[in-house]
Amino acid sequence: MHMRAFDYLRVIAEIGSLRGAAQKIGITATALSRQIEHLEYYFRVKLLERDQRGIRLTPAGNIVVETAEKVLHELDNTQKRVDDLKGLRSGLVNIRVSSSTLTTMMAPALLSLNDEYPGLRFLVEVSSAPLVGEALVAGKADLGLTIFAPDLSELTLCKRLPVVHSAIMAPSHPLSKNTMISLHDLTHHTLSIPDSAYFVRRAFDRAVKSNGISLDPVFITGAFELQIELALCGRAILFLPEFSCHNYIMNGQLCAVPLTHDLQVPTSLDLLKASHKSLSTAARIVSTRIGEIMTRMGNNQIVSTRALSL
């Protein structure tokens, strides 16, 4: 039984003639009659009857046509939704990110995706690394992008970029001309670093403790925008990946000075998804685009490291 048969039944009822309905549909009267016979066989009841005015629906036929109209309408809407998904003309992608990844990573990815797929919508929420993982596992986010990603078996790694932290400061800062910054250098200057709730602070504290040096940071905050403002004023040194301040560095507002080996914190920038959840077509496209930007960033990072070694 073909779904068109339901529509054929409706046309016959409207016109009141098998031959007239066949002409409107564009098939032979014999073929149309066969389609109605299939419907009647399926429902085990007569759907049409003749009277002096022509062919009309039986009470059962009226029920079938009324129900079929609703079903066909829903099928039409379903087809449109499937077509939208195929063509990425619509869809919402929920992304959880750490604040330091927003400007450099997310803005270029979202802008290029909006140019290519203007019907897509993006919900981007800022979270700490543990909360990014929790949102993914709970099904509240499609993708997560963060440094110091939580080690959860429920998460799948889509892309990883090794991250190197640097000392970030204004070009006017006394240490900006250094080729390398040591722990001893930092003891004489104002620092702005997050509190111990952040993984980077814990790693930094371990490095300091192992060297037997005590540091007293003046500004303790995890607010990325505030940290940047403190550095722009020439007052504070930040402890961040260079890519997180890329735009400021390119504009000459900030500079990045490499840290000595004892201050390096081994970590990575991770693009994550929930292991139990398959990505939608739209989310896969977003994941691929972010991954491409991470690859380019990794290549630039390698070039910078080589240039420094030369």
Rank of each mutant, 00 (worst) to 15 (best):
H2I: 12
H2L: 12
M3W: 08
S17K: 14
R19C: 10
R19L: 06
A22F: 01
Q23A: 15
Q23H: 09
K24L: 15
I25T: 07
A31T: 15
R34F: 14
H38M: 12
E40D: 10
E40S: 11
Y41R: 13
K46D: 12
D51C: 08
R53C: 07
G54W: 11
G54E: 10
R56V: 12
R56G: 08
T58V: 11
N62Y: 14
I63F: 13
V65G: 03
E66H: 14
E66D: 13
T67H: 12
A68M: 12
E69K: 15
V71I: 15
H73T: 14
L75M: 14
D83A: 12
D84Q: 11
L85D: 14
L85P: 05
K86Y: 11
R89T: 15
L92I: 13
V93R: 03
I95V: 14
S100V: 04
T101L: 04
T101R: 02
L102M: 12
S112F: 13
L113F: 02
Y117H: 15
G119D: 08
L120M: 13
L123Y: 12
V124P: 05
P130I: 08
V132Y: 03
E134Y: 06
L136S: 06
V137C: 01
K140S: 05
L145I: 05
L145W: 06
P150F: 01
L152N: 02
S153M: 10
E154Y: 05
T156I: 02
T156K: 05
S166E: 04
H173F: 13
S176C: 10
S176V: 03
K177V: 12
T179V: 09
M180W: 08
M180K: 14
S182Q: 06
L183S: 08
T187W: 05
H188M: 11
T190P: 06
L191A: 03
I193W: 05
I193S: 00
F199N: 01
V200N: 00
V200Q: 03
R201P: 04
R201Q: 07
F204L: 06
V208P: 02
S210A: 15
S214P: 08
S214W: 14
D216C: 12
P217I: 01
P217T: 03
I220K: 06
F224T: 04
I228H: 04
I228Q: 04
I228P: 03
A231G: 12
R235H: 08
A236P: 05
L238S: 03
F239D: 00
F239T: 00
P241R: 03
F243D: 00
C245F: 02
M250W: 07
G252Q: 13
L254C: 00
C255Y: 02
C255N: 11
C255I: 04
A256P: 05
H261W: 11
D262N: 15
L263Q: 09
Q264E: 09
P266D: 10
P266C: 06
L272N: 03
H276T: 13
S278Q: 14
A283V: 05
R284H: 09
V286T: 10
V286I: 06
T288P: 01
G291P: 02
N300R: 15
I302P: 02
T305D: 08
T305Y: 02
A307P: 05
